[in-house]
Amino acid sequence: MLEISNISKIFKNNEKDVAALQKTNLLINDHEIISLVGQSGCGKSTLLRIIGGLEKASTGFIKLNNKIIKKPSSNIGMVFQDPRLMPWLNVYDNIKLSILNENKKQQKVKISKTLQKVGLENCEKLWPRELSGGMAQRVAIARALVREPKVLLLDEPFSALDSFTKTNLHQHVKELWASLKLTIIMVTHDINEATSMSDRILIVQKPGEKEDKNTQIININNPRSDLKNVKYNELIKNSIFKESSIKTL
């Protein structure tokens, strides 16, 4: 279980404090797919980066299975909006970056297995420039998965892809989630993506200017199970842009 407790993040901007997150609390169960949606600047990516250990929280803590996370951990993998593959490393070496401390034999076995999982067998020798957008993002996913993390963080990983590739990768990520028993936390701007992928959608709302207004997180349960019902999309849109509709959920 991932426990986010009282997390705040204050950025100093020209000596003025700007709160990206304010006293945020959240519990995420094992093997859930959670989508974080919300307006730009509401703090969803910041929250993801704090969970990943890339940002330090100003207050509060994050626990994974009762252990406090303070820095990047092998239990947490992260995929970014762009694949961020090193152009000077081929596919094999890009994935190897995640498991540099393991011996060569283990690396070879793990990389080959992971490439199979993401459907990129025989692509080990390719350079990043030789990959399509979808393939590059699969390599990025493989790089995150090769360490066998318990939690996979996805920061708008499909936003730069065409709709066909996107749909393919959605399916693929869901299959990986099912087979590897991952917990997935995904930031997205695409409400359809959130409703089709997630067990829960969390709508993150900006903290107020005054200190007393904390980051609001609104839960929508089981959207994936009720895909045909378009009401979710409308409700989420309304929740993001008009706070008044929150109660109807």
Partner: peptide, 27 residues
């Protein structure tokens, strides 16, 4: 800077970051 973040998220130490990211990047 985003490449350095990849090094951070993958727990690369300073030597590994120089060897795998900085040096090849500046060659």
């Amino acid at each position: 800077k985003r490449m350095i973040e990849v090094a951070n998220i993958n727990n690369l130490n300073l030597f590994q970051t120089i060897r795998w990211i900085l040096l090849p990047g500046i060659i």
